[in-house]
Design a protein around this nucleic acid. Structure first.
Lengths: 239, 239
DNA sequence: CGAAGCATTGAAGTGCGTCAACAATCGTGG
DNA sequence: CCACGATTGTTGACGCACTTCAATGCTTCG
């Protein structure tokens, strides 16, 4: 199951079989976790990071009044809180949105890896920087785009990221989030997220039923989203 | 002038004199740049990163229709595009908001540093991860907070970050941004940014004149901002 | 089968945007 | 040193995207 992570790494760079073995060796344990569990609470000291092998994870930030912002959705292959390796605690919760298969990666193994394999160290540094770029794009969405454009952008991004790890179908992907959770990703209320979804349906851009998102008109969706993959840094590099 | 960067590093960890020398050796050149210049255009291949020694820099993301979001403001001591070391191009522009003193750091020097000093490598990885945490907090602001709370939050954050590098006065700091630029940081229009500023003034929380921000009631400002420094990771670590 | 969560719809309210005018300040050249 | 245009800040009137509140049906699952 770690192959989904290796696929993501190989999308960006070529790795030797020795490097592959070291990456495989990161995993101390895999675990199946039900939906709607907080895996890591913000502020808690951590000595382990989580790699997502299957399912949907979210980084959530809560406000005192109960409002919540999802600052990142994770797809399989993502090292969900690799930044916790240097930060030692998180400024957000990490929560499951569906049943998930996760891998636990002790920080001392990451430490050993980055000391022995500087090239992989730079790849993983790169990976956290791409995460940050995705968050910047979210800030752009939240600050400047309309609700419909924001939602279209989210769907375009997820489609692209899932394609990288071969978890998308040609015309869509399984998408188990509730409308409340979608709203929390987009800085909208549930009611308006619902109306915005319907606007996208009415325009024959997407369909969403039975926890599956179907993209009916990808070009149209990307146009309304002003979607451009630049910020995902999909090109290959040597590191 | 690089001492402002060393101050920021020393805030988080203790460095040996050898390490200090290596950090000083990063700088190939320092340069004075006028206000309102784009130092790095998004998408351009880069082999040098920029450290801010004095003045104000911003990371800007533009949309086709001319709308713009500032995703980060930089204060002296910040390694403004350290993430460019791994990304090799930026997904945003890097622009001066005032006259600035900057230092140019060639990527091959960063490479040499991280290979020889793994502990400093982890510090700089940490630094880019704190940057990302600041962007997450911005996403929370843009997605969930009201205009007045967002603006208060920005001022609280800048005060705190400037204090770390000793560039704040006890009751405020020099703040040369125009209201248009403030609006671009907060995802607001200029008109509403102006009215929001006046609301903060009316509540006797701040004053802003002659390019200087005075904080009249810090507790009050932090309360309206729901400000908590956790996400800035100010505590010391060993790395 | 019943309860709880989820999706949907309508009606009314509001925070922020848009448009437009004008005042204040700044920078520059004469 | 003043004149002048350009930029920045301020204000008012109006509009709209999104929120709020509330009700209703639809799933899902114990």
């Amino acid at each position: 199951m770690i192959s989904v992570h290796l696929k993501k790494v190989r999308q960006r760079t070529t790795i030797s079989s020795e490097e592959e073995q070291v990456i495989r060796g990161l995993i101390a344990e895999t675990r199946r976790v039900p939906a709607d569990k907080v895996l890591i609470r913000h502020g808690t000291k951590i000595d382990t990071s989580i790699m997502l092998l299957d399912g949907w994870l979210a980084r959530c930030k809560d406000l005192p009044d109960g409002d919540r912002q999802v600052t990142q959705l994770h797809v399989p292959g993502d090292f969900a809180d690799l930044h916790g390796f240097t930060l030692k605690r998180l400024d957000h919760d990490l929560a499951t949105l569906s049943e998930c298969q996760i891998a636990l990666v002790p920080h001392d193994r990451i430490l050993a890896l980055v000391e022995r394999f500087p090239r992989l160290a730079r790849y993983y540094w790169f990976a956290t920087n791409v995460d940050a770029a995705i968050t910047r794009e979210l800030a752009l969405s939240l600050g400047q785009r309309s609700a419909i454009s924001r939602m279209a952008h989210l769907f375009c991004e997820l489609m692209t990221r899932l394609e990288v790890v071969d978890r998308a179908d040609p015309d869509g992907f399984g998408f188990p989030l509730t409308q409340r959770e979608i709203a929390e990703c987009l800085g909208l209320t549930v009611v308006h997220a619902n109306r915005t979804l319907q606007a996208l349906r009415r325009r024959k851009l997407i369909e969403l039923e039975n926890r599956r998102l179907t993209i009916l008109d990808r070009d149209g969706l990307e146009e309304i989203a002003e979607f451009d993959t630049d910020y995902l840094y999909l090109e290959r590099t040597s590191f």
